[in-house]
Simulated assay, not measured.
Amino acid sequence: MSLEVNDVVEAVSELIKRGYDREYRIKDGGLYDLGTGMMVRTSEIHVDASLRFENGSSRDDGSNVYAITDGETKGKGLLIDAFDTLDQDCSRELFARLTTSRHPKRVSEQEAPSRYGLRKIYKSEFDEDAERYVLRVDFPDFPPCPFGQSFSMLGFDTAEQRYVWLVTSILRDSRLARVPYQAADVPDNE
């Protein structure tokens, strides 16, 4: 499939117009369809488009968009890897299937102070105070996702008490604490 797009938001918008209306996530190493609540068998996955958007001067900070057709149900949807962490989250077989024909595209976002309306945190700032930042997973108070879907995780600045965009190298740093959602732990920010 040929797409002439410049960034993730544009890619998602174009793919939705082409009928990719399901939202997929990685769960327990496999592909999960949020609409049906079912896992999609890896053998039934057909990757129609696999796009990579590399940000700034580093290939280590990128986002990926996968347009997928489920061969069993014929449903079409999107898997958005905004944080470039699929290699850590999904099975080797699924990762290989998703990335076999991925097409990288460099986006000119050099040292941008924000991404998708969130203040962008670079590795140098994280290194100054690594305990200040955490990765929140599945929190209900995430800001709206510009892709028209929903975030599954976001960085959080505990000093400023607000969501931030962490570059990929921070997400791969073992010092970053991952905090899963627990109803009693959500602060009332109002």
Score class of each variant (00 low, 15 high):
Ser124Glu: 15
Leu94Trp: 05
Tyr133Gln: 11
Phe142Asn: 05
Glu93Arg: 15
Lys120Val: 08
Pro143Lys: 00
Arg97Gln: 13
Arg92Met: 14
Ala96Glu: 15
Val179Leu: 02
Glu111Ala: 15
Ala184Thr: 07
Arg178Tyr: 01
Leu94Ile: 11
Ala177Arg: 14
Thr158Val: 01
Tyr133His: 09
Pro143Trp: 06
Gly148Ile: 04
Val107Gly: 11
Leu98Tyr: 04
Cys145Thr: 05
Leu135Glu: 09
Pro104Ala: 13
Met153Gln: 13
Trp165Phe: 03
Met153Glu: 12
Pro104Ser: 12
Val137Glu: 07
Thr158Glu: 11
Gln149Cys: 01
Tyr122Met: 14
Asp141Pro: 05
Ala183Arg: 00
Ser108Leu: 15
Leu176Pro: 10
Val107Leu: 15
Arg178Cys: 02
Val137Ser: 08
Arg97Pro: 02
Glu160Cys: 03
Gln149Arg: 14
Leu94Glu: 08
Ala177Lys: 14
Gly117Tyr: 04
Glu125Asn: 06
Pro140Ala: 02
Ser124Tyr: 04
Ala183Gly: 01
Glu160Pro: 05
Ala177Cys: 06
Thr168His: 10
Ser174Met: 12
Asp129Ile: 00
Leu135Ser: 11
Arg115Thr: 06
Thr99Glu: 15
Phe142Ile: 02
Leu171Asn: 10
Tyr116Phe: 15
Phe126Ala: 07
Phe142Gln: 08
Asp173Thr: 06
Pro113Lys: 09
Arg136Tyr: 10
Ser150Cys: 04
Ile170Glu: 03
Ala130Asn: 00
Asp157Ala: 03
Ser169Arg: 07
Pro146Ala: 06
Asp157Trp: 06
Ala159Tyr: 11
Ser152Thr: 07
Thr158Asp: 07
Pro144Lys: 04
Glu131Gly: 12
Tyr163Pro: 08
Thr168Gln: 14
Glu160Ile: 04
Pro144Gly: 01
Phe156Ala: 10
Ile121His: 06
Phe142Trp: 06
Lys123Phe: 13
Phe151Val: 09
Ala177Ile: 09
Tyr163Ser: 03
Ser169Trp: 00
Leu118Asn: 00
Arg178Gly: 01
Arg92Gly: 14
Leu166Met: 08
Ile170Val: 06
Glu111Trp: 14
Gly155Thr: 06
Ala177Thr: 12
Arg136Trp: 02
Arg175Asp: 12
Val164Asn: 11
Tyr163Val: 03
Lys105Leu: 15
Tyr133Leu: 07
Val107Tyr: 10
Gly148Cys: 02
Val164Thr: 07
Glu93Gln: 00
Ser124Met: 11
Val186Gly: 05
Ser91Phe: 02
Leu94Tyr: 05
Arg175Ile: 11
Ser150Asn: 10
Tyr116Ala: 11
Glu125Leu: 05
Leu98Arg: 03
Leu166Ser: 02
Pro144Arg: 07
Pro113Ser: 11
Gly117Thr: 01
Pro113Gly: 03
Glu131His: 10
Tyr181Leu: 00
Cys90Val: 09
Ser150Phe: 09
Ser114Arg: 08
Pro143Phe: 09
Tyr116Lys: 10
Val107Trp: 07
Asp173Lys: 10
Tyr133Ser: 09
Ile170Asn: 02
